[in-house]
């Protein structure tokens, strides 16, 4: 396949992922609203909000890094997408997956956060740096159990390629990592709560909880970029977990169903539980998920 054709397929995949992300966001918000006995937003609301944000006529800038913050965040999201195989065994939708892509993806998860940190650090809000350090502190501890789970998987499947890990789980539901390595799955699912940042771990981005910088500073087009990235990131993170633990997807329908339920898991917990404070969530991630991750490595290594 020529590189041009490859790029076109990648763009098609990105388009589908973006729209599914927007739709999924709206559906989830509708579900949360129904839990509160509300009707909730219209399912097409995200497609209305994006043009509204992108077409803001004026905007405030605090400098180059402030401008680049959302760009870095978006490149973090798109970066994860580029290295993520979407459909198992499909030559069209495996993007630029290669032998060590899971390491690159773990890196890219942090890349966007760091970009935002630089951008918001230049913002006009005096408490930006506090918000950023809170977010980074929580995300660092979120990454630890996830990385341990991935190491456990690397030992189990003897590879660092998501494509091979997903391919190894084909042939029946019992081949999923969920059943072959339940400890790693448990550790990763718990850390996933922090990655998607629903309650109890959404204090970082709750805009009216405390004046925290990034979510209150960025507006208009910046916020549009951040929202676009959010839609991509939510699906693609769910695809990561799907590939690693839930047997990958053989076609788009399977991908949509699986990502929805993976994302819905975090929303379900978020609706039920109240928020943690940052110091509570940091400690929480370093207790049970961390121990589970270490046990998962030990079981696989022995």
């Amino acid at each position: 396949m020529s590189i041009i054709a490859k790029l076109l397929w990648v763009l098609l995949g990105l388009f589908i992922i973006l729209n599914w992300g927007l739709l999924m966001g709206a559906l989830i918000r509708k579900i949360v609203a129904r839990v509160g006995k509300r009707v909730g937003i219209r399912w097409y609301q995200p497609w209305l909000s994006l043009p509204m944000l992108y077409s803001t006529r004026s905007s405030i800038s605090h400098g180059v890094m402030y401008y680049l913050g959302p760009v870095f965040r978006l490149s973090g999201g798109v970066g994860i997408f580029l290295f993520m195989p979407l459909i198992v065994g499909s030559p069209y939708f495996d993007n630029f997956s290669f032998a060590g892509d899971v390491v690159v993806i773990l890196y890219f998860q942090f890349f966007g956060m760091l970009g935002m940190a630089l951008g918001a650090g230049e913002g006009g809000h005096p408490y930006s740096t506090i918000g950023i350090s809170r977010g980074l502190a929580q995300f660092t501890t979120v990454e630890v159990p996830l990385t341990l789970a991935v190491i456990s998987l690397a030992i189990q499947y003897d590879t660092l390629s998501i494509k091979e890990i997903a391919a190894a789980q084909q042939g029946g539901i019992t081949n999923w990592t969920l059943f072959t390595n339940p400890l790693a799955t448990a550790a990763a699912l718990l850390s996933m709560l922090g990655i998607f940042r629903h309650a109890p771990f959404n204090l970082v981005q709750a805009p009216n909880e405390i004046p925290i910088g990034p979510p209150t500073e960025y507006h208009g087009t910046y916020l549009g970029v951040l929202r676009t990235n959010g839609a991509i990131l939510h699906v693609i993170e769910a695809v990561l977990f799907m590939n690693l633990f839930f047997g990958g997807a053989g076609n788009w329908i399977e991908l949509i169903i699986k990502t929805f339920f993976i994302y819905f898991f975090t929303v379900f917990i978020g609706v039920v539980f109240p928020r943690f404070r940052i110091e509570q969530s940091v400690v929480w991630f370093l207790k049970v998920p961390l121990v589970l991750g270490i046990l998962a490595i030990l079981f696989m290594a022995i």
């Binding site: 609203a33 509300r38 009707v39 937003i41 609301q45 209305l48």
Partner: peptide, 9 residues
């Protein structure tokens, strides 16, 4: 829930 302005955008 009673008035729920979110449904009007």
């Amino acid at each position: 829930p009673r008035f729920d302005a979110y449904r009007f955008g």
